[in-house]
Design a protein around this nucleic acid. Structure first.
Lengths: 222, 222
DNA sequence: AAAACTATGTTTAAATTATAACATTTACTT
DNA sequence: AAGTAAATGTTATAATTTAAACATAGTTTT
């Protein structure tokens, strides 16, 4: 297993889910778990769990299974949850404020350091002891405080420019909530949360479900 | 092409993105587009675009390409964006409030009808003219108003029970923001937005990126 | 009006991803 | 202590997904 073999993004996106389930097991004082039992709880195949984990190393023991606490910590390491990231939020509208108040993210190492907006009515306000600053002050703030990550919760018309600026100032990751694809030249990582896309998918699936249901009742009625 | 052949969720999740790009083309008064040009703009293959669309029908014309406005409307139909859904939000904390204020969702057919919480300090408050009600009133409200969809923005400890109730009251879709997997027996559709998972993925990718960068500079320095 | 070109829809091939199978090691039981 | 059962890590197979190839229909140009 070459350390630098690229691991599929699908695998990565399953890790947080494993992590969540292991956390629950821990809370219930369950010390060990087999891939089989975990697979039944999670609704995936045991084979997939074993394969996914073995991308990163052999964390289990034959005949025994996995030690829950150990595996939990190892996944945290893989995901880099022991690292600390200094965060700013750009755009302190409703969503920005909501994210600012989410304490859980801090537990994952994402420490909120700054809030920025253009709206004079928001500037000066404080959330969890942090003052909302004018976006004009952002450049010096980011550079001086070595900000790692920015949550982008500003209108889509402005997000591209802001993203480019942040990237050029050395920010490593962007959590993008705008319905825009940011294709930045530099090696900054962009993680999108396209709420609108998600809602459209929900719409499709509801319709699909209703069609299926209709077809079923029709079938059983003839 | 059988009308009832199940279409992969990966395809479905690409549709909103196509829709977004087509919307932008429309705004720029671009009347027609070929799969090739769209593929270049979007950073996907032309083949994939054609294949994806052909799951639902032949919307293009050989030698010409796709009529932007027509395709835009067809994708809206596929996604069910012409339908109207009556929505309630359960849990009017920061995130719930943020979603309540998002007007864009209304444009997609998701009409906010009710807000519910257990917190007495929130009950009675209004957002966009809608009063926050006690969660005890939810059952009759959902049944009387034939609510289709609920946004779940309440603490994870309570979300399972609420989801089961809503499902039993005939709600068709749940937009779940809690870090919990809702496996409901009924045929209600659950669309998850696991923000915490997304953030962990960002964490992984930032680390990965930094490792790559380090390896690069090391290489070029020897 | 004919020829050259464009670009779809569809078929075929390649690549990727997921599942199953299995050999081996460890744990547990009698 | 020996034998049986359990469960991993890994290899092989199957399924799915993506990309390429291509035949055909339609458009544009001369």
């Amino acid at each position: 297993m070459s350390a630098n073999r690229r691991i599929s993004i699908a695998v990565i996106r399953r890790l947080p889910r494993y992590y969540r389930y292991l956390g629950e097991l821990l809370e219930n004082d369950i010390k060990r778990i087999s891939s089989k039992e975990l697979s039944e709880r999670m609704g995936v195949t045991a084979s997939q769990i074993r394969q996914d984990l073995n991308n990163f190393g052999g964390f289990g023991q034959q005949g025994y299974g996995y030690n829950v606490e150990y595996l939990y910590k190892e996944i945290a390491k893989i995901l880099g949850l022991n690292n600390k990231y200094k965060v700013i939020i750009v755009g302190v509208g409703n969503l920005g404020q909501a994210l600012a108040n989410y304490v859980k993210f801090e537990q994952r190492g994402f420490e909120l350091c700054g809030l920025f907006d253009v709206n004079p009515r928001l500037i000066g306000m404080t959330i969890r002891g942090i003052e909302v600053k004018d976006i004009d002050e952002m450049e010096s703030f980011v550079k001086e405080n070595k900000i790692d990550v920015a949550y982008l919760t500003l209108p889509k018309s402005k997000v591209r420019k802001v993203a480019e600026d942040l990237a050029s100032w050395g920010v490593k990751g962007l959590w993008n909530f705008s319905p825009v694809d940011l294709d930045l030249s530099s090696d900054v990582v962009v993680e999108d949360v396209h709420l609108s896309d998600s809602l459209m998918t929900l719409s499709y699936r509801i319709n699909r479900q209703m069609q299926l249901k209709e077809a079923q009742t029709k079938k059983s009625n003839k």
